[in-house]
Structure formats: C-alpha cells, structure tokens
Design a protein around this nucleic acid. Structure first.
Lengths: 142, 142
DNA sequence: TAAAATTAGTTGAATATTCAACTAATTTGT
DNA sequence: ACAAATTAGTTGAATATTCAACTAATTTTA
C-alpha cells in the first residue's frame, strides 16, 4: 500500500473489500442478499417491528437510502411493513417467514467473514482502532 | 456509537462521513467536483499522462468504475485522453488547463478537510491505525 | 506463425450513496 | 384552534460500486 495514501482512503478501501467479500460469500451460497440487505436483516433479527427511521439510524443510512434498501428486501419478500397505528408517519418493519429463513442461513456466513476480517488482530488493536475511528467520526460530525 | 457495531461498519461510516464533508466543502466553494473526481485530479496532478489502468489501481477503482469517473471528468473538460501509440490498448490521461485550475482551487480545501479529519490525533495513533487496517486488508485479499 | 490466453477498456444492470424536492402526519407556539 | 414548524417517508437525479459480457490489442505458447 502506498505510503502517502490518506487514512480515509485506506478506510474506504477496507470497507469496500469487506463488502465484496461478504457479497461473494453470500452469492457463493446462493443467498440472494447483498451485504447491506444482510446487515438490515441482522438488525431486524435482533428486534422486529422497529420503525423505519430507527433502522436508518442504526444502519447509518439516510432516509432515501433506507427506503430503497427496504424496497429491495420487500421485493424479495424478506420483510413487510405495517403502519404504526399510534403515529401514522411511522412504518414498523417485520421479517417474513422467508426472511427468518434466509437470515438463519446468512448468519454463520457473516460470522465467517467477520472472523476472516479480524484474523490475527488482538483485542487491544481492535479497541484502539475503534477509538481512533470514533475520534475521526466526531471530528467529521459538525 | 453502539458498542457491538462491527469494526467494518465503523470504517464504512467514517469514510462516508469524510466523503460527505469533502463534497460539501467543494460545493460550498462552487467547485464542480465530487470527492472521487477530486481524488483523481490530485493523482493526475502528481504525474500526468498516466495510463487509465494505473490510475484505477492507485485509486482502488475497478475498470468499470474508472471509466465512469473519467467520463464525468471529461464531460466537465477537466481531463482528456490520448491513445498510447506503443500499446494501443492503453489510454494516457492528461489534465486540461481548466483541470489544472480547478485542482489548484481544490487542493487547499482537501487539505482543510484532511486536517479536520485528523484533528486531535497523534502520529502514533495514525500509524497504528493504518497498520491495523492494512492487516485487515491483507486478510480480505484472497 | 496461428490459436489461445491475457490485458485494457466500454457498456449495461443492479445496488448503494447523497441530496433536494415533495407529501402526509404530528407537534409546537401563540 | 390554527398556522408554523417538525418529522417520517417517497421519489428522482447524479454519482459511486460491483459484476459480467463484450470488443480490441497484445503476448504467449504450441
């Protein structure tokens, strides 16, 4: 890797490579999910019926982005939405049975890629790296 | 930031935020460049006449991606291409006069955003973080 | 040297990102 | 109560990402 490359470029490259690896792993197992879709199902797996807005925040998507992502997942019949009866601006998002099934198949693959990603790193390195990235994030947020 | 969030998600978020900041800074100064286009001009500023393929490698784009990026820059008349007379498969890429001018305006803004990004980090942190990211990259490359 | 493999680049499709304009529902301020 | 502001979500446009199919030029190899 080039010495002068900015840290942000190294980060961008790393996250792109991670995404490629996970996409590949899922596709190798004939799972019709992108890594972003997969991340969304993982969040829904933790707790269903969450508001679309809350999912967007958790997944760091803007509101346009989450709309498109959920549309892809709906098209594949992995999720469905209900209006929140109390505040009709909100949509509550649920996994379908098919969504539960695909998530169950995807989870160990996500874990495999995560393990590959962190292979040979000790906890101290991981924690310190997170701390630096979080400092950078707070520098970049207003 | 959520404790359980994977390191790769933190990286993705960080590089997205960086890109947003730079896009914003450029647009605030009425510079018609995205952060990716800007990065491309910066590379060309170091050395012109480079092969498209070489630029792609340096910028971590695939060949489809670099084609589209260079097309955007051509449309704005910031670059032009010549066929390599020795190996006609290659295209050599150059900055136009307009490209040189916009690069000159953009450079200090890139430097501002870089400084903002790294504000409060010491060199040791930056170097260690790069090392961790490079380990992750080598884990993810085959 | 002719066929096969490789390399550089283009294009199109699907997804992803970012932003701005828009609608609809709810909350706030007076 | 009602106008104004806010909030959730959709849509469309431009850019960006990833991959696969394709062309054209060059190199390998048998």
């Amino acid at each position: 890797m080039e010495k002068g490359m900015p840290l942000t470029a190294v980060m961008a490259r790393t996250s792109r490579l991670y995404r490629i690896r996970l996409n590949q792993k899922l596709s190798d197992h004939n799972i019709d999910l992108s890594s972003e879709m997969c991340g969304t199902l993982l969040e829904l797996g933790k707790k269903e019926g969450r508001h679309q807005k809350e999912l967007a925040t958790t997944l760091f998507k803007d509101k346009g982005g989450i709309t498109k992502l959920l549309k892809s997942l709906s098209k594949r019949a992995f999720i469905f939405a209900k209006a929140d009866e109390i505040d009709k601006r909100h949509k509550k998002i649920y996994l379908t049975e098919k969504g539960h099934q695909v998530l169950k198949k995807a989870m160990p693959l996500v874990e495999e890629v995560r393990a590959q990603t962190l292979n040979g790193l000790d906890n101290v390195e991981i924690i310190q790296t997170r701390e630096v990235l979080e400092k950078v994030i707070s520098n970049l947020i207003e």
